[in-house]
Design a protein around this nucleic acid. Structure first.
Lengths: 154, 154
DNA sequence: GTGCCTATGTATAAGCC
DNA sequence: TGGCTTATACATAGGCA
C-alpha cells in the first residue's frame, strides 16, 4: 500500500522504521477498533515500541465495566484512608490520579473547542443568510447580478 | 475496501457479520505480524469471538514475557508481599492502561476538532471576501446598498 | 459455513514541506 | 517533527459457485 511493494523484513533504516511504525501502528489500532465494532467482539491489542512505550487498544465491554466498578470502589477506599502506604503503590495511585486529571483537562479543552466550532459556524451561517438576501434583492430589482463570485461559495 | 463504503456500526445480519469477522480477523492478524517484523517491535493481539473462541497473535517472545513487560511498566512487582492481592493489582494496572487509552483518544479528538475549526474558518473567510466584493461592486455602481443587514456580520 | 473473483475503498511508502 | 499529498499496493464487500 504505497509507492513500492513492501518486503516482509525488518526495516534497517532507523528513521524509516520509526515512520512506518507510527503509521502502521495507528492503522492497526484503527482496524482492531473497526473489527470489534463491526463484529461485536472483544479485542485486546498491545504494541510495545522498541523503547518500551506501550500503545494499546482494548474493546473491553465487560472489562471496562469491571474497571469502572473497580475505580469507584477504589476511590471510596482512598477516602477512607485505607492502609495503602507502600511506596510503589503510592506511585501507582499518583499515576492514576494524574491520568484522571489529564483526562478531565482534555475533556474541558474538547468542550471549549466544540463551543468555538459552534460560534464560528453561527457567524458563517448568518453571513450566508445575508448573502442570500443580497442575491434575492438583486434579482428582484432586475440587476443582472455581477455575482458570479458567488460560485466561490461552498 | 470493498464494493461499498463500510459504516462503523455492528453488522446486524448474522451471516455477513460472521463472514466479515473471518476476513477482517485474518487481515488484522496479518497486519499485526507485519508490523512486528517490519518495525521489530513486540505485539500481542487477542480476539475473542462472540462464542468465546480465542484467536491470538503474539510476536517472537512468549506471551508471558509480553505480559510481564506490560505489568512492569509501572515498576510494580506482582507478588503477595506488596499488600495487594494479584487480582486487585491486576485491575489497577488495567485501570491505568484504560486511562492512557482514554487520554490518547481525547488527544485525537482534539486534533480532529482543531482541524474542523480551521476548515469552517476557511469557508467563512472566503464568504466574507465575496461579501467584500459585492459591497465594493454595489458602491461602484452607486446602488445604495439595501444591505444594512451587513451589520449583522461580526 | 468455505473459497475464489473483482470492483472499489483503504492504508501507506515516498516525497515535500 | 509531524502533517499533508500522491501514487500504489492491499484489503475486503458483495457475488457466485
Amino acid at each position: 500500500m504505497g509507492r513500492k511493494k513492501v518486503v516482509l523484513k525488518r526495516i534497517e533504516d532507523k528513521s524509516s522504521r520509526q515512520v512506518t511504525f507510527s503509521k502502521r501502528r495507528s492503522g492497526l489500532i484503527k482496524k482492531a477498533r473497526e473489527l470489534s465494532v463491526l463484529c461485536d467482539v472483544e479485542i485486546a491489542l498491545f504494541v510495545f515500541s522498541s523503547r518500551g512505550k506501550l500503545y494499546e487498544f482494548s474493546s473491553g465491554n465487560s472489562l471496562s465495566k469491571i474497571l469502572d466498578r473497580y475505580q469507584s470502589r477504589f476511590h471510596v477506599e482512598m477516602n477512607e484512608s485505607k492502609g495503602l502506604n507502600d511506596i510503589e503503590t503510592q506511585l501507582m495511585l499518583e499515576s492514576i490520579m494524574g491520568l484522571h486529571e489529564k483526562e478531565r483537562m482534555l475533556r474541558e479543552e474538547k468542550k471549549l473547542l466544540q463551543r468555538k466550532i459552534r460560534a464560528v459556524q453561527d457567524t458563517k451561517d448568518r453571513t450566508e443568510v445575508v448573502l442570500g438576501l443580497i442575491k434575492h434583492s438583486n434579482n428582484q430589482l432586475a440587476h443582472p447580478p455581477q455575482l458570479e463570485t458567488l460560485s466561490l461559495l461552498p
